[in-house]
Amino acid sequence: MERYLLPPEELSNEAIAESLTNTATEKIRNGLLQKKNLVYLELNGCSGNIISLLNGSNPDFEYTLNSMVNLRYCNSLMGAEGEQATEKLFNMLDEDFILAVEGAVALKNNGLYNVIGSFKGNPLTGLEAATMLGDKASHIFAVGACATHGGMSAAKPNPSESVGLQQVLQDKKMTKLPGCPVNPGWFLGTLAHLLLSGEPETDNLDRPLLFYSTLIHDRCPRRPFFDRGIFAEKLGDKTCLFKLGCRGPVTRTDCPTRKWNSGVNWPIGDDTPCIGCAQFGFPDAMAPFISFDTTRVVKDE
């Protein structure tokens, strides 16, 4: 077979994710892959991750729905309501499905601080749903900061005693996609990888290396300012935002290149510090988000 010389493929994380998705959907179309069932469970959180997923492009949400997964349960979007909705959730236990969870698991009072529905007259707690479905799922995604480690829901003093999904499914392997919210590309790209060639390679904290391998700081367009010690004094400045509290040096994501909302902007591009929303420990470990009184230059003795 004749081989054509092709121009070199783009190797940015975005390009890889896009080509993964395209390959996955092509394979589905050609019958190489089966569309898989997806259960999207919203627990103790703000439902911001599902909104972020609706913001996805390449693949967009429509495409995901039509070509990649059969979305079988999603509180924010499904037509059914009440017990009929909850029944759909229970029916999944007899089938093969991928489980995606956003929001933390509230432990207080046996999980009754987060009731996600009722079944046969009894309240169904987020805790029950997470353990029940997590036990049966073929793959589990913890989507967003609340699901990966408790996130906002677990911020001090953690009134609902919220924890990350892993804590209630200790023996289960899961892929963790931190972020507040998750970037749609991180979720859909990981999903595509799973459909195409199994679970993606992850680091020791279960984050896909594809998206979470590199410190923001190491690819920050404002890095030269840091290296020269030229620091922003206030928001809106165009230099390094380190002294205002930038958590780019401790946060691993591809934000500098992928950016947000189809790549139009990102927090540092908006002249504000990264607040480390994709770092484990967010928000408490990443606070304060913005400080104006950090020492910029120590008067030389």
Partner: peptide, 14 residues
């Protein structure tokens, strides 16, 4: 750690 990159705003993981 005034200019240590892991100590933005003179704080480090809380």
């Amino acid at each position: 750690v005034t200019n240590n990159r892991a100590w933005a705003a003179a704080t480090h993981f809380g």
